[in-house]
Amino acid sequence: MILIDIFVGAIMLAAAAAAMWVRNLVSAVILVGVVSLAASFIFLRLGAPDVAMTEAAIGSALSTVIFLIVVRRTESHEKGPEVQR
């Protein structure tokens, strides 16, 4: 069973690293959402369903959407290499 935890933790690390390296802001936001989703799964496995629900609802749903809204708003105003990083 610990293999599942290691697997999900590896997904978390990979998504977090990819979120830093990827050039597209939308992909980065989605990857951060993946980190939150994996974290909520790990919370659930550790026996903390309350925290898992919070992480899934706030971390991977609402904040991802808020970031996406912000990315869309800012991209439509400032186009340049600095924004696309």
Binding site: P49, D50, A52, M53, T54, A57, I58, A61, L62, V65
Partner: peptide, 25 residues
């Protein structure tokens, strides 16, 4: 359901409120 059953099942006001907000979204 999540926030009404907060004292019986996992979850509570914050989680339920966030789920309601995602429905609104």
């Amino acid at each position: 359901y999540i926030f009404i059953h907060g004292h019986l099942t996992p979850g509570g006001g914050f989680q339920g409120g966030a789920v309601v907000a995602s429905a609104v979204l």
